[in-house]
Design a binder for these strands. Sequence first.
RNA 1: GCGGGGGUAGCCGAGCAUGGACAAAGGCGCAGGACUUAAGAUCCUGUUCCGCAGGGAUACGAGGGUUCGAAUCCCUCCCCGCGCACCA
Length: 942
Amino acid sequence: MAGLNIKKTEEKWQRRWKKSKIFDAEIAEQKGGKKKFFLTVPYPYTSGPLHIGHGRTNTIGDIIARFKRLQGYNVLFPMAFHVTGTPILAIADSIAKGDQKVVARYKGYISIYEDANKVDEIISSFSSAERVADFFAERISEDFERMGYSIDWRRKFNTTEPMYNKFIEWQFKKLYDKGVIKKGSYPITYSIEDNSPVGEDDIEEGDTNKVTIIEHTTIKFGVSDDTYLIAATLRPETVFGVTNLWIKPTAKYVKVAVGGEYGIVSREAALKLGYQREAVEGSEEIEGSYFVGKNVKEPIEGREIPVLSAGFVDPDVGTGVVYSVPAHAPYDYIALEDVRREEGIEIEPIKVIDIEGYEMPAKEICEKMGIANQEDARLEEATQIIYKDEFYRGVLNEQCGNFAGIKIAAIKDEVKDWLKGKNIADVFYETSRKAVTRGGGKVIVAVLQDQWFIDYTPKWWKDLGHELVEGMTFYPEKYKAYMHDIIDWLALRPCARKRGLGTRFPFEKEWIIESLSDSTIYMALYTIAHRLRQLPVDCLNEQFFDYVFLGIGSGADELAKEMNVEVDVLNGIKEEFEYWYPNDLRHTAPPHLSNHLVFFLMHHAAIFPPTRWPGAITLNELMIREGQKISKSKGNVIPLAKVSELYGVDMFRLYCAINADFASVINWREQDVDALKKRFNALVDVFENSTGVDVAELKEEEFTHTDRWLLSRFYRRLKESIELFEAFRIREAGINLVFNLLNDIRYYERRESPEKRRRIVRNVIEDWLLILSPIVPHICEEEWHKLHHSFISLQSLPELKEAFIDDRVEREEEYLVSLIADIKEILKIARIVPTKIYVYTADADTDNWKWEVFRAIKDLPERDKIKEAMKLRKDKSTVDFVKQLMKSNRDYFELNEREILEREKAYLTEEFGCEIGINEEHDPKRKKRFAIPLKPAIYVEG
RNA sequence: GCGGGGGUAGCCGAGCAUGGACAAAGGCGCAGGACUUAAGAUCCUGUUCCGCAGGGAUACGAGGGUUCGAAUCCCUCCCCGCGCACCA
């Protein structure tokens, strides 16, 4: 390693890059200016330190940014910080309250960056959310500098500062004008005890066993003129076949007032209903048994049906009242069988769904599965089977009036709407399973009445979204189709909350814009953020952004006057936006697809004209460590801040680039890291050993075959790598540039000598360093400076010396390698110590015909080859030859085998330690005839 | 349930889109050798089975199919991750 201190080298270049401001992106001069490239990765959320997992996406982003610079683009790669939302606030609150767990965790985080004696002082400042955010934003930006990222830091901002608020307000006004900001009710999982919405993280086992919201339909069954038993169902279309109600006799029921009517539901359901509908009042409690034996009026035709008792009814699921459709519901069928046996009540099932393969579906499935009582757990399974079969294949029959003859899948919602329209049915939300919060509070579904949301359903919007996606590049490509699906699926999205940090909702100030909704088009702000800083924040009103981003309004002069700024300043801002936008590439991770990315795309589609739509999205999978997810609960987090010290930044970057393709998860394994480190060190050695060589020693006319071979490999690999880079196939490019080239060099060195290797590497090192510099910029910068007084980070790709790419030279070497392998194979199997090795080429005097035949049939399909060959030379040995030829699967490529062998005779002699005979007459075992073109016959004497 | 991705040698992991050169890249591990006083590092060789001549057999989750030919295409089955919204 020649004493190169990697860590110091990295720091040195980071310092110099920063000092020389080489990554500050400026608008290129109009004439002869470079093409621009604007690349973004998601801004980090500043609730704590980042770890190596976050490092992958950002590193890939930087590699792309650097590659684009190398390609001659004027690159803008900015960064900002995300602060919006509840987590940072929650952390600050916990620390303020003295929550010891949180305090301990944050002390740990602080001590990653600070001396032990400062920790207490800093943690005490963390009772302010702003301090938390600022502290980590500052540290993260240092981390990023230490990762060698080529970021233009002048444009950084965070999402709670006034400038950003103004920008977000503008965005929401634009959306409001499009009519997609709406207020309405919205079901959500909710904790009664905590009196607040709960997400997956708040629910016990919420991450492993998800709780979703299920929409039930409630149906009213008349007890008297204004009082109803309210049954809940998932299958409202079966209401035509109802024969009775089920109720749990031992459960408590409550009469509640809903509107001007009274409904009877279980006590549990009454409570839930209170969170879902307006003006629900409970009154007296009634024992379930009170209703048993009474009759109620079925709502469609007004039939009188009995209320019966059933054990399977759970008062905490639905309304605690179930209507019975024994023809189609296994539970109902079995319960009714019990009733018949025990009480002698006969009730005929009413069949309402016709489905092939069943006469009476519920009855038949129970008999088939051998289910005989209500306690049988398989009833659930039977229900599922019937439900699915009937949903997809079943058709409503003549019992169902206008709905007869239509598939359930197609008619279900219509039936529901019809029932609602007749004031028979309503909606009741239930959780998909019984759940409690981590604190033990019961989780129910509440309906938020005045929730603001973004309505993504309008057709014009979805159409625009699809159009935008269609015009974009995705890598990996599969995500494009996926994105189309997501756009179709996207519906309503709540966009404001009552709690958290962020921008106040412009139309109702007690709401705060939720954190994903405020991170959709912020890339536009990067283009001008540093310039906006110079304006009073009050200037940043709707007219201002309209003018800068959309070019609309009453004109620059008037606007500038209103803002009290020079027109030039205003137009300078506009010009900068117009230069940089659109965002040419957004690089992020697949988990963002169905949330952030789709909003990013949809909001661009809605707000900006097509010329400002993003160009491409690339996504890399996440990083795991030793096969495990990286998480603080697993205790396997490596902070990004430690990368430099533990592994070296270039090493880390190389690992990120090489270890897995974008589409695969990277596994951070120490074993692999060590292995890569050896390779990396070998690479550095090769560089170090070559930069000192005097260029004057290199005379092209003196290049030998092996020199030319290595040069050919070199330039071929460089050329391939550039193409791979362009296609974002960074892993393959990196492997080519490091592993494969090192192997070529090693091979060369064995054939030649380390001294010659230095010379030849010196000949290509500049191009090599250039193309490798996006991945390992520090070491490349260091080596580059030994040869030039300029930053490699600012260089452009030179014209590749493609003339060195020489198929013939490489084929010749390949030929030699395969010959040596064949000889070794023979020596091994025959266990011979050779005294002399005879090699016979296929063009040796008598066998001249072989090349002719080879040439003649090279382009023919396999099956015609023998026939054609026989036309040329009628002899059985021709058949054998062609068969052999096909088996060996050689490309046709003409080489002068004799010449190669003569040239490499000394090498072969040295390799095998014995005399080599080329095309000599001596052939005691008659091997000569086995020679085929490009594969000589061999005879070993020992 | 909806959507999507996988299963490759002792291990990790390429390749499968465009079927043939795939006994299957690369790395790790293991074995042997060179170098070294030694260790480490580095380099070379080997690492399914059989074969005293460059060959053959079996193999890419399981089972079928298409094909002259399949890790690669089609079907069925088994098994394993992931996302599903108000959460950054």
